[in-house]
Simulated assay, not measured.
Amino acid sequence: MPPAPPRAIMPLLVLAALAALVVASFAALELKWGAFFTPEAAETTAEFLDGFAPPELSLPFLRKCLAASVETLSMSALGTLLAVLGAMALALPAAGRFGPLLRVPSRVVLNVLRSIPELVWAALLLVLAGLGPFAGTLALAAHTSGVLGRLFADALENAEPLPEKTLRTNGAGPMSAFFYATLSQTLPQMLSYTLYRWENNIRAAAVLGVVGAGGLGQMLKYHLSLFQMQNAATVVIAMLLMVAMVDAVSVALRRALTR
């Protein structure tokens, strides 16, 4: 039997390498699985969860949760909008639209932006912008710019070049050919990426408050630090409801774009 071609072997080698990595990860970590199933662990968990019931449902506190939810939602929306602008500004040179010299530096900037997590960006920007939602918004914008910029650049590079070339051949200018041919092809995909990242930024914005960036996360940290578990339970419920609402809206919009 002739040997298998290299293309058939490569996927097997990749799977074998991934399996070896998983086995090495389990071997390197001291995971104490038995500790999760002891009677002491079950008793401690039940006692901890019992402290969250019943949630705080007084009208003044619900108003605070609503205001914090609006703040978190605003952080995610504005951060995503700023990220789209920054991503498009970096995606064009990263896709080679301005020549090969700017392609590599632009991709390096995108790699740096998305390699630093939102929490680290928030911790750095809190020093410059101070406590509050402004630092959280900038942190979301910085990280998401790197993620969307890479996705936008790949979408532009993978777009069919023939329509733009045809328009250029028939006398259209570079900008007109790009907007009517390439951008029109990739725009639905870009919008889908943007909506998906907005979903992620809702969750991230809720967590960023833990470092002092405002919103529901800051309320959660405050009440947990004071062991006000019933108040914290209400904040967690508000987070879940907000994320579920935004997920439903985003899924509906993405389906409408792909029809």
Rank of each mutant, 00 (worst) to 15 (best):
P2I: 02
A4I: 01
A4K: 05
P5S: 15
P5W: 12
A8Q: 10
A8E: 13
M10Y: 14
P11L: 08
L12R: 14
V14R: 10
A16T: 12
A20G: 15
L21I: 12
V22K: 13
A24K: 07
A24Y: 07
A28Q: 11
G34F: 10
G34S: 15
A35T: 14
F37E: 05
T38K: 10
E40F: 09
T44A: 15
T45H: 09
G51R: 15
P54D: 06
P54G: 09
E56Q: 10
E56S: 12
E56M: 09
L57D: 02
L59T: 15
L62M: 08
A68P: 08
S69C: 06
V70T: 02
E71K: 03
E71Q: 14
S76V: 05
S76G: 13
L85D: 09
G86M: 09
P93W: 00
A95I: 03
G99H: 08
R107Q: 13
V108A: 15
L110S: 03
L110E: 05
N111L: 15
N111K: 07
I116M: 11
I116A: 09
E118R: 05
E118Y: 02
L119D: 08
A123D: 03
L124K: 08
L131M: 12
G132L: 07
A135G: 13
G136V: 09
G136R: 06
A139Y: 07
H143K: 15
S145Q: 05
V147S: 07
G149Y: 05
G149K: 06
L151P: 01
F152S: 07
D154L: 13
D154S: 14
N158W: 01
N158C: 09
N158D: 15
P161A: 11
P161K: 10
T166M: 14
R168N: 03
N170I: 07
G171R: 01
A172N: 04
G173I: 03
P174R: 11
M175V: 12
F179C: 06
Y180T: 07
A181C: 14
T182K: 02
T182Y: 04
L183N: 08
T186H: 01
L187Q: 03
L187H: 02
M190K: 01
L191W: 01
S192P: 01
L195G: 06
R197T: 03
R197G: 01
R197N: 07
W198I: 02
E199M: 06
I202W: 04
A204K: 03
A204F: 02
A205N: 07
L208Y: 01
G209D: 07
G215P: 05
L216W: 00
G217H: 06
M219I: 02
M219V: 00
Y222P: 00
H223W: 13
L224M: 13
Q228K: 13
Q230P: 00
A232K: 02
A238P: 07
M239G: 03
M239Y: 04
L241S: 05
M242I: 03
V246H: 04
V251M: 12
V251Q: 14
L253N: 01
R255G: 08
R255A: 13
A256M: 10
L257I: 09
T258D: 11
